[in-house]
Computed example of a mutant assay.
Amino acid sequence: MGFSTEFNSVCKFKTDQELYELLEYGRGKMKKTGLRIFPTGQKVIAYSSANVAVAIVKIVASIAEINFQGEEVTEVEMELIRKLTPEESHVQTALAYEMFFGEPNRK
Score class of each variant (00 low, 15 high):
Lys83Asp: 00
Ala94Asn: 09
Lys58Gln: 05
Val52Pro: 13
Ala96Tyr: 06
Ile66Ala: 07
Pro104Thr: 09
Phe3Ala: 04
Tyr97Ala: 05
Glu103Trp: 15
Met99Gln: 14
Leu95Gly: 10
Phe13Ile: 07
Thr40Ile: 11
Met30Tyr: 08
Ala94Cys: 09
Leu84Ala: 01
Arg106His: 09
Ile37Pro: 09
Thr85Asn: 02
Glu71Met: 10
Phe13Gly: 00
Val44His: 03
Ser9Asn: 15
Ala94Asp: 12
Glu103Cys: 15
Val60Thr: 12
Ala61Asn: 10
Tyr47Gly: 05
Asn105Pro: 12
Phe3Gln: 07
Ser48Asn: 08
Lys107His: 15
Cys11His: 12
Val44Ile: 06
Met1Cys: 12
Asn8Glu: 14
Met30Lys: 13
Glu79Asp: 02
Gly2Asp: 14
Pro104Glu: 01
Leu23Gln: 06
Glu88Val: 11
Glu87Val: 14
Thr40Gln: 08
Val10Pro: 09
Thr40Lys: 13
Met99Asp: 13
Val60Ala: 03
Leu35Val: 03
Leu19Pro: 09
Gln92Glu: 11
Thr93Glu: 07
Thr74Asp: 01
Thr85Gly: 02
Gly34Val: 00
Ala55Asp: 06
Lys31Ala: 13
Phe13Thr: 06
Gly102Arg: 03
Ala61Ser: 10
Glu72Pro: 07
Phe13Val: 08
Glu87Met: 11
Thr40Arg: 09
Ala64Tyr: 06
Lys14His: 12
Tyr20Glu: 15
Gln92Cys: 13
Gln92Phe: 13
Arg27Lys: 11
Ser48Trp: 04
Cys11Tyr: 13
Ile66Tyr: 00
Phe38Lys: 05
Val57Asp: 00
Lys83Leu: 06
Phe100Leu: 04
Leu95His: 02
His90Asn: 11
Gly2Phe: 14
Lys107Gly: 13
Ser62Trp: 03
Asn67Leu: 06
Thr74Ile: 03
Tyr47Asp: 08
Gln17Glu: 15
Gly41Gln: 06
Glu88Pro: 01
Gln42Pro: 06
Val44Tyr: 00
Ser62His: 08
Ser9Thr: 12
Ala55Pro: 01
Phe68Asp: 13
Lys43Asp: 14
Val10Cys: 11
Val91Arg: 08
Ser48Val: 07
Lys12Val: 10
Val76Ser: 03
Gln17Lys: 15
Lys31Met: 14
Glu103Val: 14
Glu77Ala: 06
Arg106Asp: 12
Met1Arg: 07
Glu88Cys: 04
